[in-house]
């Protein structure tokens, strides 16, 4: 992501502790790095240009390992940032990922006035949530996209936050909009505004196995769905 002033910001998951052994060596944090216009780390951001976020202690889940993860980065006014990622769910025995949205100031500090001490989490059941991207509406509300997986069924998720990081109770069902648009797989990867409506880019299939198709879906400004398209034709 690049800012109007030319800074480049990158977010990625990184190892929590490279000296750890066993399963602990698989734990991950979130790292945000900012470069200046010449490609050098911006020393005015975080610690020498880097912010590390440790939201949860990773855990084994079957043959996989779940830890902090990041996917989306959204620029706010004043060069503040929203990081869209995930963390291990709180609670005994939980090994699934929840949505995590964090706000950083322009200097890389956690903005503790946002959500709860700078962090908003969304726990949709015991399935693993896959956070993707966020956009800022003209009214400064934030819409976050992604999907959630449980028992072989993947469902798209939209939720909307007020500028202070509280859930917008006027949006969707119980402040979020998990929608089962296909019987089996519907994964959302990005969201964009079309006027006041919300367009999702995604793919999915309506069978338990087989190929997937490119799809889009449109939601009204209140989070209710009004349509979808399926593109089965070859694009190239």
């Amino acid at each position: 992501m690049s800012s109007p002033t030319g800074q480049i910001v990158v977010v990625e998951p990184v190892e929590h502790d490279t000296s750890a052994t066993g399963d602990a060596a698989r734990d991950t944090d979130i790292a945000v790095a900012r470069f200046d216009t010449t490609g050098q780390l911006d020393q005015t951001f975080g610690a020498n240009g880097i912010v590390r976020l440790d939201l949860s202690t990773g855990t084994v889940s079957g043959t996989a390992f779940q830890g902090d993860t990041a996917w989306g980065l959204t620029l706010l006014s004043g060069d503040d940032l929203l990081v869209v990622g995930g963390k291990v769910a709180d609670g005994p025995g939980r090994t699934d990922i929840d949505y995590a949205v964090m706000k950083l100031t322009a200097t890389g500090a956690v903005d503790r006035s946002f959500g709860t001490n700078g962090l908003v989490t969304l726990d949709i059941g015991t399935g693993t949530d896959s956070p993707r991207t966020a956009i800022i509406q003209p009214d400064e509300k934030t819409v976050v996209s992604g999907h959630t997986s449980n028992a072989g069924v993947v469902t798209i998720v939209l939720f909307r936050l007020l500028p202070d990081g509280q859930f917008d109770s006027s949006f969707g069902r119980a402040q979020r909009s998990p929608r089962r648009l296909l019987p089996f797989i519907a994964e959302a990867y990005d969201v964009a505004l079309q006027g006041e409506n919300l367009i999702l880019a995604r793919y999915g299939r309506d069978t338990s196995a087989g190929t997937v198709d490119i799809m889009t879906a449109r939601f009204l400004a209140d989070g209710t769905g009004i349509g979808r398209t399926v593109m089965k034709a070859s694009l190239f």
Binding site: V10, E12, V14, E15, T18, S19, A31, Q40
Partner: peptide, 15 residues
């Protein structure tokens, strides 16, 4: 431009 946040690690893959 590159940066190695976790030296010796293998996972730095999203952006």
């Amino acid at each position: 431009a590159t940066v190695n946040v976790a030296v010796g690690a293998v996972k730095q893959w999203n952006s």
